[in-house]
């Protein structure tokens, strides 16, 4: 009887105060965990990571950044350790859209909101995420394909250079290309080969295409600028040898410094601006909004405008 009265006395003050009043956590008390795809994967990720760290410092939030080096299994275990560390928000850059779903689900069950950045998660994982922030590979690829079709005026034969097989970005860009090209029966796709995001492979694959198809190649659609610039080098060599009568039309969905120079020089036709700085800032903003109790839209797409020979002069040279 006495114990129960004691307990009641203890419990009363707690019950009286009840739930703490709604308050916005200041940025300095927020910890954001980030499961990165791997700064060594390519220059885009490296620039993103640097911008992420700079912007996080500006905002004053604490971050825990883990690099999974493009290994899906390592990413799963790193997400697990971020859950254990009880971060306030988790930002995930999925290496593989499907493979990351179980880990994201665990975070959701542990009541940690997850923000997906850059590459979208498989639809089966979307109920476990709070938001997506980043570029839309699919629509960027559609813009690049449309730019090529417009430059060729709807008629001609082209070759396609795809990204590394198995990456979500490669698949979505490939789908974007196909979707637009399907509307134009006058455009014939001679061949589509993966060039693994590599400039050297882009160059050698283009050389093979030139041997196979010669002057029939009128346009080259690359899933990334690196491969496109490599293919441009191969085409230039072929033009000077006389194997090609003139340079084909080149477009791709992600602008890099070398593509910028090539567009300015007039060799390259068009590209799409996907800024890793904007990508990183958007992810951090969305994560901070969620941590501070606001509800951002479920999908936040960064602006990815087309870059043509006419609009290039208004843009600064990308840093990567």
């Amino acid at each position: 009887m006495q114990r129960r009265t004691c307990l009641t006395f203890f419990l009363l003050p707690v019950l009286a105060y009840g739930q703490p009043a709604e308050h916005i956590k200041p940025a300095s008390q927020i910890t954001i965990g980030f499961s990165n795809i791997g700064a060594g994967v390519n220059a885009y990720v490296a620039t993103y990571t640097a911008a992420f760290n700079t912007y996080a410092k500006q905002l004053g939030v604490r971050t825990v950044v883990l690099d999974s080096q493009a290994d899906a299994a390592r990413q799963a275990s790193q997400i697990q350790s971020l859950i254990v560390q009880q971060v306030d928000v988790l930002i995930v850059w999925p290496i593989n859209a499907k493979a990351v779903v179980p880990a994201v689900r665990k975070a959701h069950l542990a009541k940690i909101p997850v923000v997906i950045t850059n590459s979208q998660i498989d639809p089966s994982g979307e109920p476990y995420t709070a938001a997506f922030s980043g570029p839309d590979d699919y629509s960027q690829a559609r813009i690049a394909a449309q730019l090529l079709v417009d430059a060729l005026k709807g008629q001609g034969s082209i070759v396609i250079l795809d990204g590394l097989p198995g990456y979500t970005a490669s698949q979505r860009r490939s789908e974007g290309f196909k979707e637009v090209l399907g509307h134009y029966p006058g455009i014939q796709v001679l061949d589509a080969q993966p060039a693994n995001w590599s400039r050297e492979r882009g160059q050698s694959t283009m050389e093979n295409f030139i041997i196979l198809f010669g002057r029939r190649i009128q346009g080259v659609l690359s899933a990334s600028s690196d491969m496109g610039v490599g293919a441009l080098a191969a085409a230039k060599g072929a033009v000077s040898d006389g194997r090609l009568s003139r340079l084909p039309v080149f477009t791709d969905p992600t602008l890099t410094a070398d593509a910028y120079d090539a567009i300015k020089a007039g060799d390259y036709s068009a590209s799409v601006l996907q800024s890793p700085e904007a990508d990183a800032k958007s992810a951090l903003k969305v994560a901070l909004d969620i941590a501070q109790g606001r509800t951002p839209p479920k999908k936040v797409f960064i602006d990815t405008p087309a870059v043509t020979r006419e609009s290039i002069s208004r843009l600064p040279r990308p840093g990567f």
Binding site: R199, E200, D258
Partner: peptide, 8 residues
């Protein structure tokens, strides 16, 4: 040949 180099 490539006038460029990647880490990998």
């Amino acid at each position: 040949r490539v006038m460029g180099a990647r880490n990998d």
